[in-house]
Simulated scan of single mutants.
Amino acid sequence: MTTGDAVRNRLGLGRLLPLGVATDGAWLTEEAAVLVLRTAVQRLPAVTLGRVRVSLADPAEAAAPTVPPPPSALPPGALRIEADFTAPADRPLPTVASELRELLWSTATHGLDLVIEETDLGVSGLSDAPAGPAGHPREKDMTAARPPGGRPAQPQGPAALAASAAPGVAHLASTLGDPVHLASDHIRVEVATAAGHRPLAVVGAVRESVRGALGNDGRPVVVLVTAVGTAEQPAEG
């Protein structure tokens, strides 16, 4: 296990997933992605997610990063969602699986800006509980709504102050170190996004703000999103 893997496992971040495409120069923690997916699935009657993993669909087809990536981040490429779920016994299983597959893909694509190529589902069991009305999370699932991404970090310095003030930033984070890491060949910023803002739009705003604060010194700005706000549904587009 590499040092980066050990750090990510200890902090519970999971994989660092490529956000958008190679030229976007951004990543999203698997922890944040899975939490958003679990929250979305609460809208399906009597469906409970078990294990959820997000990984590269085909590592051989992954592109080379155009900016220095965070430690042990996955290279840019299309992703696969793998999930186990419990379905209600009083509904046709193919119908439930189809609804779940569509919801996971739509949430990951339109809510998280991830490039999803495959969604693999496995049935882990059937529930005798009657399917209640969609849109009302079950009480036992509400604990999944805790915000991930580590404790908020106070901005210090021009770049951090600029990043924290960018549209759509809920707060800076410090999961891999300082919230703004200034290296000789790049700048890495960790942020949590606010509800109602698309992650890639926030990434662009952070990049523009940091470049402006540092006078466009030529270093690429890498953004790691550690949490995604889910209180409001992000607009599609």
Rank of each mutant, 00 (worst) to 15 (best):
R8A: 14
G12W: 14
L16A: 02
V21C: 03
W27G: 01
T29G: 00
A32C: 04
L35C: 12
L35A: 10
L37I: 09
A40F: 06
R43L: 11
L44H: 02
L49Q: 01
S55H: 15
S55P: 15
P69V: 10
P76K: 06
G77A: 10
P92M: 02
P92H: 00
L93P: 01
E99T: 09
L100Q: 02
S106H: 07
T109V: 13
V115M: 08
E118W: 02
L121W: 01
G122A: 09
S124T: 02
G125F: 01
G125N: 06
L126A: 08
G132V: 09
P133F: 12
P137Y: 14
T143K: 06
R146C: 04
G149A: 10
G150E: 11
R151V: 12
Q156G: 08
G157E: 07
P158G: 15
P167D: 07
L172G: 08
S174E: 13
G177S: 08
V189W: 06
A192K: 03
H197N: 08
P199G: 05
A201H: 12
V202N: 03
V203C: 04
A205L: 01
V206Q: 08
R207Y: 12
R211E: 12
R211L: 12
L214I: 11
N216C: 03
P220K: 10
L224K: 00
V225L: 02
T226N: 03
A227N: 04
A231L: 15
G237F: 13
G237Q: 12
